[in-house]
């Protein structure tokens, strides 16, 4: 790079680097703070530990990847979580997307209240929500289990979808849809061929967020799961005796998958922007 640049440009670049070095250090510190727990999680998935105690580094091994599904209860819990996460992501996205679109595009009576409600739902303490939902289910006589977990997760996920979709909608030029109508597309076709593709990155982000929040949730789930065990519930109960390294491996794999999908979504958004 510097070999092709003229001398004066090289000097200027060096000076810019020096001036920005404090900021740079700060940035890396913050990034380090963010990544450290994840790094530890990944690292201890490779720890050659014996038995259940996984706190000190014993050496590198791939054995936990090999025996990922060696603990049947843990595997069931993971499958439960992934299944619930998928259902929640789909349902919450279907319900939240229209809210986000309406908020982003139209001005209507009650728009402010809907806005407030969404933030209230996000800000409400989870523990209170979980407890309240439990009493509601008991009053209604609904048996707790897989279904109630899904209902609870969908409820707290909808606002996240609505907010990501609304952000995307704000940058959307409504004349694009008019152009589609003008060129012979009916209302539904215009939405499918023009509006939806433009909103898709927002919709996908919302769905991913839902999936992550659902797979991750402990507090609300613990109130409403009945006898259903999810991944976080299992890990928490196991923590008393020691968390097996398989948990780290599963965490690593979920993290990697999330990273891949999020990366793909960014690429998609760039491509659509042209």
């Amino acid at each position: 790079m510097t070999t092709t640049a003229t001398p004066s440009r090289t000097v200027r670049r060096r000076r810019a680097v020096r001036r920005g070095s404090g900021l740079r250090l700060w940035t890396w510190l913050v990034i380090g703070w963010l990544l450290l727990p994840i790094a530890v999680m990944i690292l201890f998935g490779f720890n050659d530990t014996s038995g259940k105690v996984n706190f000190t580094w014993q050496g590198f091994t791939l054995t936990w990847y090999e025996h990922l599904f060696a603990i049947p209860n843990l595997t069931d819990a993971l499958l439960n979580s992934l299944g619930i996460g998928l259902v929640v992501a789909v349902v919450a996205t279907l319900l939240g997307t229209p809210i986000g679109m309406a908020l982003g595009r139209y001005r209507f009576r009650g728009r402010g209240s809907v806005d407030l409600l969404l933030f209230a739902a996000i800000a409400a303490p989870e523990i209170a929500l979980g407890a309240a939902l439990l009493s509601l289910f008991i009053i209604l006589g609904v048996p707790r289990g897989y279904g109630t977990v899904v209902v609870a997760h969908v409820a707290f996920c909808i606002p996240y979808v609505a907010i990501t979709v609304r952000a995307r909608m704000a940058g959307y030029d409504p004349t694009l849809e008019e152009a589609a109508r003008d060129l012979g597309a009916g209302p539904w076709t215009a939405f499918r061929l023009v509006t939806l593709p433009m909103l898709l990155p927002g919709v996908v982000s919302g769905a991913l967020l839902c999936f992550a929040l659902s797979v991750d949730d402990y507090v609300i789930t613990s109130f409403n799961a009945g006898r259903t065990v999810t991944f976080p519930l299992w890990v928490y109960s196991a923590a008393r005796t020691g968390v097996p390294p398989q948990v780290n491996v599963m965490g690593t794999l979920i993290f990697a998958a999330g990273l891949l999908v999020a990366g793909a979504n960014v690429l998609l958004a760039r491509r659509r922007a042209g």
Binding site: T175, A179, R181, L183, V194
Partner: peptide
């Protein structure tokens, strides 16, 4: 009659080209 059923076409001031 809705716009998609009128045999006229509009060139928009902002062009409204489909970016995707």
């Amino acid at each position: 009659v809705p716009p998609d059923q009128r045999d006229v076409n509009l060139v928009f001031q902002s062009y409204a080209l489909f970016p995707h």
